[in-house]
């Protein structure tokens, strides 16, 4: 069975599902961050698969954009995690409840 477009989309869907469920299950902020990276990668896979299918380079260009956004997100997100750890001595998202009261 030669892998067709739908095979790539199925792989991407499975990876995205694992990432989305991981965001809910994970408790520490770094784990959630890594699950978001996994979801971004699943989307990149669909971009590249469609780029191959339609023989258009646009999909691959937008993968590049997604990667830049992921890098920016890594810089700012990890900065926020470090600032949070400095104040609370933990990265558990349940400790980030200062707005609850």
């Amino acid at each position: 069975m030669e892998p067709s477009l739908s095979t790539y989309l199925a792989l991407s869907g499975i990876l995205f599902t694992i990432g989305a469920v991981g965001v809910i299950f994970k408790r520490n902020a770094i784990g959630m961050f890594m699950c978001i990276e996994l979801m971004l990668n699943a989307v990149n896979l669909t971009f590249v698969a469609f780029s191959r299918y339609y023989e258009d380079v646009t999909g691959q260009l937008f993968v590049f954009m997604v990667m830049s956004v992921a890098a920016a997100e890594a810089a700012v997100g990890l900065g926020i995690i470090i600032a949070f750890f400095r104040n609370r001595q933990s990265v558990d998202v349940d400790d980030a409840s200062i707005l609850r009261n």
Binding site: S6, A10, G13, F16, T17, A20, F25
Partner: peptide
């Protein structure tokens, strides 16, 4: 999480 996962998997197979 399990419920969301099942919905997403169903969508995936619909796409497939």
């Amino acid at each position: 999480g399990g419920f969301l996962g099942i919905i997403l998997m169903a969508q995936t197979f619909f796409i497939f």
